[in-house]
Design a protein around this nucleic acid. Structure first.
Lengths: 334, 334
DNA sequence: CTGTTAGCGCTTTCAA
DNA sequence: TTGAAAGCGCTAACAG
């Protein structure tokens, strides 16, 4: 099976020239006779030769490949990916999305590891999705989307998490809910903190108490949300509404409610955050806060390309969020 | 900015040993004194060293990285990606999704180019999404999802396109439609041909004529679908229903209908294919044929890993499709 | 205009 | 148990 791939050496031998000459032809360098160039080109076509990204990148400084590093391919990161992909068209760059399997994403600092692995340089620059540690120096230009620490002195794209959480909670309050639970995100993420802050602020503005018992950590991942969702829904004084820190945990919350024989939105209203496509598919369709993920991906790519071109750009881009009311919330019946 | 990354040489120098020794420690080879090993390990941790995938792959045959090659990150390929990503957890493999920017996906044979670039070996095996040319020998184990030519003597995963198209068209016929247009996919794709065959068969079984004027090529991409959709909808004897070969072109068809002042499903019913999450978000929600994309991704990964482990597996996996009725189709009013 | 040479960071014999 | 040296495929000086 493992027929070794054709190398530049094979091409050189077949064409009767040196590898250096072939390299020049491939890269369009000056100093090759037209006739030679054509002959080499023919051999390249005949053999179906394509230069190895690996070998090339070991030697040269540019590969025209942009990396996008994610902990896992889930709805959020894939939406970003769609945005980046649409924006990369015509820029001359190719895209390489990298994700460790398994729990790598769980370890803080996964982005450092991945970057180290790919650097050197398989990629010219990288987009980090939800990195936990935003270290100072990475060796290559880097843009972060929704980083752990929030904007911290280097290029960042995020959404207005605070306002989004505020309007989500205000929506529930406007519907007459007063006992509103919150399924928080990962404690180490700035976005998570901002969403909780929006929740608290909305309650306070409405003159409602913030009951610590109603706040649980769901951790953004569906699996991790199950247990805390169950706790909230089996409280003796059960909340009549829950604001989950992202759609995945909101959807899981609705599933748990179903298992407990509770109807959404009949017995409990649920609001999510992100507006991933899956939220509209849920039963009932999830009321959520839209985060313009594809636009964020495009913005990140724009920042990164400017960086690669040596143009310094405004270090921080924040895009607006917006409440999307669907079927998982309803007015509280007294 | 470009602080060069720490290399194995840096580690060796700091630890006062040779690079060879460091390499052995990293790879857990025998023949290193425990004390030395510990000292080297400490330096590695201190320096935050991570070996370069690039350099390593140039030398050794395994990288434990699986490639997934796509023409573009759009809803279909990202759904597959989610499936592959969930299945890769715990296998010890990492994932590298690669996509050329721009029109690379348009050129037939893009998968060959990408594979050549990544081979040699950045990746141990690859999953090819909708490859156009399924060449015999690629040098590394390869599994194709929904290939151009259909199952052709090497491992393939696809969905039951014919049955899906059949039930989509039968659904329209059952609703009383008799003039049913078809917006076909890319002419070079087997899946596209099968969907058209399902459409034709359903019409024939119902004793309806297949009017060639009602069949246009939409090409699976949203942009490419606009013109043919417009043509169908402005025909003097306009069809009362359209079966589009995938969701993206179905959604575009609905948009075009809107621009033309036609209501969906009031004036024209529309059915798609794939059931990408976006289809449920469309206005109105799209009736479509579900293709279990995440399961297909998981199946492809399973096949590939078995191949990598030297286990030969059943070369062809076909998953069932299923009609999902939503709001874009309705009974024809006479 | 073309070829020789020297690495890029790493793994792997093979000697010491 | 360790290290020196070769070489993976390629590019970039530099010589011829």
């Amino acid at each position: 099976m493992q027929r070794p791939r054709t190398t530049i050496g094979d091409v050189a031998r077949t064409a009767g020239v040196s590898v250096a000459t072939v390299s020049k032809v491939i890269n369009g360098r000056y100093g090759v006779a037209a006739a030679t160039s054509q002959r080499v080109q023919r051999v390249i076509d005949d053999l179906g030769y394509e230069s190895s990204l690996v070998a090339r990148s070991l030697r040269s400084l540019r590969t025209n490949v942009i990396g996008i590093l994610v902990a896992e391919f889930e709805p959020y990161s894939t939406e970003l990916l769609k945005g980046v992909s649409s924006a990369v068209q015509g820029t001359g760059y190719e895209l390489l999305a990298y994700s460790g399997g398994g729990r790598a994403g769980g370890h803080a600092g996964w982005e450092r590891r991945y970057l180290s692995r790919l650097s050197g340089t398989l990629i010219d620059g990288a987009i980090l999705v939800t990195p936990t540690v935003v270290d100072a120096e990475y060796g290559i230009p880097v843009v972060a989307i929704d980083p752990h620490t929030g904007p911290s002195g280097f290029p960042t794209v995020d959404a207005d998490n605070f306002s989004g959480a505020l309007s989500a909670t205000e929506h529930l309050i406007a519907l007459g809910h007063t006992r509103i639970g919150h399924l928080a995100g990962r404690a180490d993420l700035e976005s998570s903190r901002l969403r909780e802050a929006g929740y608290r602020t909305a309650l306070e503005r409405a003159g409602l108490d913030v009951d610590p018992e109603l706040i649980r950590v769901g951790g953004y991942r569906s699996d991790d949300a199950e247990q805390p969702a169950r706790e909230l829904l089996t409280l003796s004084r059960r909340p009549s509404a829950i604001f989950a820190a992202n759609d995945l945990s909101a959807i899981r919350t609705m599933e748990v409610a179903g298992e407990l024989g509770l109807s959404v939105p009949g017995d409990v209203s649920v609001v999510g955050f992100d507006n991933v496509p899956e939220s509209a598919l849920a039963q009932p369709p999830l009321t959520t806060v839209n985060q313009p993920m594809q636009a964020m991906g495009r913005a990140a790519l724009g920042l990164l390309i400017d960086l690669l071109d040596g143009k310094e750009r405004d270090a921080h881009v924040q895009l607006p969020t917006e409440l999307v009311v669907r079927g998982s919330t309803r007015r509280l019946r007294l």
